[in-house]
């Protein structure tokens, strides 16, 4: 296991695309987060988004958008294995299809871990510097764990798309449009089953903090259809984890069925 992840990092540490994507994500996350907090005017201020404990929901919601970029990185890395024919070469040299899946899952989990750790650092710094709240920083820190699962979820979708399609450009397009494709299919599915589609479940892991605010606002009588239809976060989490395991299983199934070209 340790050797497998070492091999993965031997491949990507000298790879410039990897650094560009992660550099972009790690630079943009705090920059955009700071930017949003500075928006607003004399009457409305957003600066409270930095404060504990809300900072955890806010930063992970922002981070969830960057998960798409990290997912793209995973698509590129996996498609590379097919276009360079290095997956085939690894099999010839003495790996098997299980090693391939385990390597990529380990890579995905390590990416999710680094991203979650980075969001913790950014969130902690923003929360500490902004002050204005006596709440302990560990309150609502569960959002980081949920973000971690979500990151694995998006990257597992990337894994399945890349393994199935194998062409980098096509895979990226399919990965990015998977949410749109899913919403079209959802139209034909009756409520509440349409709420359990994988991309929606994964996306809902980091709930939109602004929607939440509207929903809990006292005095607003208009029922918020979006908030009402929400599945509880715990259920979402369990369904997401189940989906992730299904994705890994399907990826393995795809690999075993196809010849390694």
């Amino acid at each position: 296991m340790l050797d497998l992840i070492k091999i993965e990092y031997k491949k990507i540490i000298p790879y410039r695309t990897f650094w560009v994507i992660f550099g972009l994500v790690f630079l943009l996350t705090p920059a955009v987060f700071y930017g949003i907090g500075q928006m607003g005017n004399d009457t409305v201020s957003f600066s409270s988004i930095y404060q504990f404990p809300d900072v955890w929901n806010n930063i992970t919601y922002l981070g969830s958008w960057f998960n798409l970029l990290i997912g793209m990185c995973v698509v590129i890395l996996i498609c590379n294995e097919f276009s360079f024919k290095t997956f085939r070469q690894h099999v010839i040299d003495g790996q098997d299809k299980v090693d391939f899946i385990v390597s990529k899952v380990l890579l995905i989990v390590s990416f999710a871990l680094f991203s979650a750790l980075y969001l913790f650092i950014v969130g902690f710094l923003f929360g500490s510097i902004s002050g204005g709240s006596d709440v302990s920083f560990v309150k609502d820190i569960k959002y980081l764990l949920i973000y971690f699962i979500q990151a694995i979820g998006y990257m597992s979708v990337a894994l399945i798309v890349a393994t199935l399609v194998r062409s980098t450009a096509l895979s990226i397009i399919l990965f990015l449009s998977s949410i749109a494709i899913e919403s079209i299919i959802q139209l034909a599915i009756p409520y509440p089953f349409d709420k359990y589609f994988p991309m929606e479940i994964i996306a809902n892991l980091t709930p939109n903090p602004f929607l939440k605010d509207i929903a809990v606002q006292p005095g607003i009588e208009i029922a918020n259809p979006l908030a009402e239809a929400q599945i509880p976060l715990n259920t979402t989490l369990i369904v997401a984890v189940v989906y992730i395991f299904i994705f890994w299983g399907i990826t393995y199934f795809i690999l075993t069925k196809k010849d390694i070209k």
Partner: peptide, 13 residues
């Protein structure tokens, strides 16, 4: 030790 068809390596390494 095997060599099958084309040499397969990472071009950027």
């Amino acid at each position: 030790g095997s060599l099958l068809e084309t040499p397969n390596f990472y071009p950027y390494l």
